Computed example of a mutant assay.
Amino acid sequence: MLTLFFVEDLPTTVGATYEFDNEDANHAIRVLRMSTGTIFNLSDGNGSWAQVQVLTVAKKSMQVKVLETGRQDPLDTHFTVIQAIPKGDRIKESIEMCTEGGADRIVMWKAARSIGKSDDKIEKLQTTAREASKQSRRFRIPEVIGVAATNAVVDQIAQADLAIVFHESATMKVSELVVPGCKKVAIIIGPEGGLTEDEIDTFAAAGAKVALMGRPVLRSAHAGLAALSAVNTALSVW
């Protein structure tokens, strides 16, 4: 699969030349050692893409020719991951994994037992999602929003066709709860210290299903990817 970079001014005319000169271009030249003739993809992060070929390489930029353009439509199923804020660098790790797992929106949630903080990091976390999208060859960068309070999570549940809260005390499996044909799915991941009983009761009362992810208890930062994998499979998206 071709290497992917994001640009704000995506070229859309086949045969046109384009000056690729942002930070990604510098990375392509200095780290990836791209040279004349190399073919790669550019995207605006909203689904549109252009396949280009390098014509000339300068110190920090390159001139490319547009070979093909197109647009990748979103999947029929829209995934929102509501992630309780992990501590330290695991915040970034959770964004990377949810992006690679196919999340369309990632909501950072201040759960009762969250000890991490992300109030001043949303812009940086959006950059993390952008970088993870390049790595996973996604033409659509997920939106990172927050910080949400618990009542905002209840609102997210109300907007979803299917909302699942993952908790180790649950007795129902994902395969027993997923309803085929769901278009809007919300996945709620608790913090390292676990969800409180009040949070579980509140989400269940709002219409969320409480599901068991499996016997192993995952780190909060890793659980989003596992949950996305399970639900994508149950819905036959994967």
Rank of each mutant, 00 (worst) to 15 (best):
G181T: 04
S175W: 08
W238V: 05
V231Y: 03
E19K: 00
T3A: 01
M62I: 06
E8Q: 12
S136H: 10
W49V: 00
G116M: 04
L67A: 06
T127M: 14
A205K: 11
V52L: 05
E131Y: 09
P180D: 05
L75A: 12
V179N: 09
A129L: 03
G70W: 08
A58C: 04
L67P: 12
G45Q: 09
D104A: 01
R30G: 02
A112S: 15
M213R: 11
T127Q: 15
L218P: 09
A112E: 15
Q135W: 02
T69N: 10
S48T: 08
T171R: 14
S220A: 15
G224N: 12
S236G: 01
A234F: 07
L67Q: 10
S236M: 02
E168H: 02
E8P: 12
V147Q: 14
N46V: 03
H167E: 06
E8N: 14
G37N: 09
A205Q: 14
T196Q: 07
I39E: 13
A129N: 05
F139I: 04
E192G: 12
W49Y: 13
Q63V: 03
T38K: 14
A152G: 08
G45L: 14
V52T: 12
F166L: 10
L212A: 08
T127F: 15
E131P: 15
T56A: 13
M172I: 01
V31A: 15
L2Q: 08
V66C: 09
T56Q: 06
F203H: 04
T127H: 12
A186P: 01
W238E: 05
A129P: 07
N151P: 13
F139D: 08
S220L: 07
N22I: 00
A163Q: 07
D73Y: 10
D198N: 04
V54S: 11
F79Y: 12
G224I: 05
I39M: 04
A234P: 13
E131G: 10
F6V: 04
T202A: 11
G102R: 01
S35N: 13
S136W: 07
N151L: 00
P142G: 06
S61L: 01
D198G: 00
D161Y: 06
D198P: 00
P191E: 03
R105S: 07
L218K: 13
I164A: 00
A112G: 05
I145V: 15
G70T: 02
S94M: 07
L218H: 02
S94C: 08
V147G: 12
C182L: 01
G102E: 04
I115E: 08
V57N: 03
M34Q: 08
L235R: 10
T150Q: 12
C98H: 00
F40Y: 13
A186I: 00
M62Y: 13
E123L: 09
D44K: 09
K65N: 14
S169W: 03
N26H: 11
K183Q: 13
L235G: 05
M62K: 08
V231P: 10
D73K: 14
A84C: 07
T80G: 02
D89S: 14
G37S: 08
S61D: 12
G193S: 08
L225M: 13
S220C: 14
T99M: 04
A132I: 04
W238K: 11
L162W: 02
R140D: 09
K60N: 09
Q83F: 06
Q53D: 03
I141Q: 05
L225I: 13
T13E: 14
R138A: 03
T99L: 01
E68Q: 12
A111E: 00
E192Y: 03
